[in-house]
């Protein structure tokens, strides 16, 4: 018993730094935000401390949630986020898997290719966005140059406020999201692939399995824990999309589209960000909190479903 108690203290001391940070920067804000979201017309008062409950508000209830859900900009943001999630997550997971399998199979220059694919991971997102903005610029961008070479007309990728511009911008955003997220997925998949015993492949080879069957019957099932992990974290990441839109349009942190429609590709996080108080606007903290809590609930629901499905589908 004495031993156990001693070890318990050691463990507590070892965990303390991480726990303190988690409590201060995760759990406390989470609780505070949730409390704020129920306080209508919340405003900070000078010298009232950090606890939401000690500040000024007009009433308590679900009014801010109703306001958010009735806000057409929130609905646009929710729709945009969903579209981005549904399109970018499958593409990035499948592409990550394919690239990893290919990388794992080449022998020469594997390290060089690995480094190339890993570059976006260590590069600043805004810098990457600038590169994309230049590449997709209408008049002398690299992409339009290629389009014209193949006889097409110039496309206004990021400057068109019509429906056509909506989809062309989505294309750019998806490219950006998929590419910038690929590095981490490849890292996880490659380490997963390298931990699969080579003898399974030798056995399958002797058993006469085709390449496709080896991939579907051996690689995918044995990699399924990594695939589940990557899918879940990708979903969570995609729901929190914000900087990808800001980065490709490159017109400031409140502008989510071309000149004609600055909310064209607003996301839920972008919506919340816009509602925060700043030098220009007093903002609406209660509404922002309500928006955050709604996003949290959506992510929780999705993650719950995926954990349930993966428990049934992930092998061993």
């Amino acid at each position: 018993m004495l031993e156990d108690k001693k070890d318990g203290w050691k463990a507590a001391i070892a965990l303390a730094p991480a726990m303190i940070f988690l409590v201060v920067f995760m759990f406390f804000p989470l609780v505070n935000t949730t409390i704020m979201s129920f306080m209508e017309g919340f405003q900070f008062r000078a010298n009232a401390g950090i606890f939401a409950i000690s500040h000024r508000y007009q009433g308590i209830g679900f009014q801010e949630y109703i306001n958010v859900l009735r806000d057409p900009i929130f609905l646009t943001a929710l729709k945009n986020t969903m579209v981005m999630v549904v399109i970018s997550v499958p593409i990035s997971v499948i592409l990550g898997l394919l690239v990893s399998v290919c990388l794992n199979n080449i022998k020469r220059l594997q390290n060089i290719f690995q480094t190339i694919f890993f570059l976006p991971y260590v590069t600043n997102t805004i810098a990457l966005g600038m590169v994309f903005k230049v590449m997709f610029s209408t008049n002398n961008g690299l992409i339009n140059l290629i389009v014209e070479t193949f006889g097409g007309d110039k496309i206004a990728w990021l400057t068109d406020a019509t429906t056509k511009g909506y989809w062309s911008a989505l294309f750019v955003i998806t490219c950006y999201t998929v590419w910038s997220g690929l590095a981490f997925k490849i890292l996880v998949f490659l380490s997963g692939l390298q931990s699969i015993d080579k003898q399974y492949y030798e056995a399958a080879r002797i058993d006469g399995a085709s390449r496709a069957r080896v991939f579907w019957k051996i690689t995918v099932p044995l990699l399924s824990p990594m695939i589940a992990y990557i899918t879940i974290t990708s979903f969570i990441g995609a729901f929190k999309a914000y900087e990808s839109v800001i980065a490709v349009f490159g017109r400031g942190s409140y502008i989510f589209g071309p000149a004609g429609d600055t909310n064209m590709w607003i996301t839920v996080v972008g919506y919340v960000y816009k509602l925060l108080p700043s030098l220009m606007t007093p903002g609406n903290l209660s509404k922002a909190s309500a928006g955050s809590v709604i996003l949290l609930l959506i992510i929780l629901a999705f993650t719950g479903i995926q954990l349930y499905v993966s428990k049934k589908r992930v092998h061993y």
């Binding site: 003898q199 399974y200 056995a203 019957k217 051996i218 399924s224 092998h315 061993y316």
Partner: peptide, 15 residues
């Protein structure tokens, strides 16, 4: 047309 039994059997763990 050979059958090979590996030292650690190499049975597919998910099947």
């Amino acid at each position: 047309g050979i059958g090979l039994v590996f030292q650690n059997y190499a049975l597919y763990p998910h099947l």
